[in-house]
Amino acid sequence: MSSPDWKIAVLGLGIIGSRAATNLAKAGLGPVTTWNRTPKGLPGERASVAEAAQDANLVLLYLKDSLAVREVALRLFALPEAERVIVNHSTIDLATTKWLAAECEARGIVFLDCPFTGSREAAAGAGLVYYAGGPKEWIDKVEPVLLKSGKAVLRTGEVGTATIMKLVTNLISACTVQALAEALATATSHGIAPEALTEAVALNASGSVLAAMKLPTMAKGDFDTHFSLANMLKDSRYVLELADEAGLDTPAIKAVSERMAELCEDGLAEKDYSALAAPYLKA
């Protein structure tokens, strides 16, 4: 099997999956079929996992969580045996990644562990960055496809390493946005303009792409969803599991996870995770 022979199925058409599927179709790599639990009415969309994937030899998963990945994987495993590669782009827990790898190996299916970094705009502009864990020769074959929806592929090692890399980088993002929310609230309550804080952070060692992107919208109470609070909460819980397995105390992400859970219960689950600033705007 070589990359020009790919018949691609994209399963999961949320904020990222729908845009990745669009970019793949535009790239003319071959037939691209899609499926989503809630129909989206997109080109190439099929009514079931089986219909979308039955003729595909490259199946890309952009699903919500570990439960969804396990459920969809079982439907894929029920298909007639065929030469197939499954690439998981969903952010899931390490146990599910290892389960999926083992189940694929038992069936002669190639599995790659490839979560991504980048949110809505990056996905629309084919600017995602994929972390890739698995056999080098298969990453080599799939990389040209990944680079139609992404700008880079970072090879992390064996299956499971990419999942860990994704989770720990999301730990940093969640804690950073909580820190930005606290800094913004404290500064503005003492009369400093949000614009002044944004400029100060940009010139400070704490400045980052994330801060430049989130601070201005947080100051306006604009929580238009690029990456949802519910998804970041999910990922924080997965990374807490990793820490527990290693016997580590991680108080920062634990506190942020608890705050995100509270805000999700308050109705902000589908807002951007920059809604960590929302409680301060009500004060």
Rank of each mutant, 00 (worst) to 15 (best):
F116S: 01
L63H: 08
R120K: 15
T96I: 14
K141L: 15
V59M: 12
V142K: 02
T117Y: 05
R84G: 10
W99C: 08
G125Y: 00
K64M: 10
R107N: 03
D55M: 09
P115Y: 05
L58E: 12
R120V: 11
Q54P: 00
A122T: 03
F116E: 01
A68P: 07
A52W: 07
V69W: 03
E121M: 07
F116H: 01
P135G: 00
V59L: 11
P80Y: 06
E83K: 14
A122E: 13
P80L: 07
G125R: 11
L67N: 09
L61T: 12
E83R: 13
T97F: 14
E71Y: 04
D93W: 06
D140E: 15
P144Y: 08
Y62N: 14
A123R: 09
S48C: 07
V85N: 02
E103L: 00
H89R: 03
A56Y: 05
L112V: 04
F111H: 08
P115T: 08
E103R: 11
A101C: 10
L128A: 07
A124Q: 15
S48N: 05
E143P: 04
V59A: 04
E103A: 12
G118K: 02
Y131V: 01
A101E: 13
R70G: 00
D140T: 15
K64N: 15
R107V: 04
A73R: 10
F111Q: 11
A124H: 09
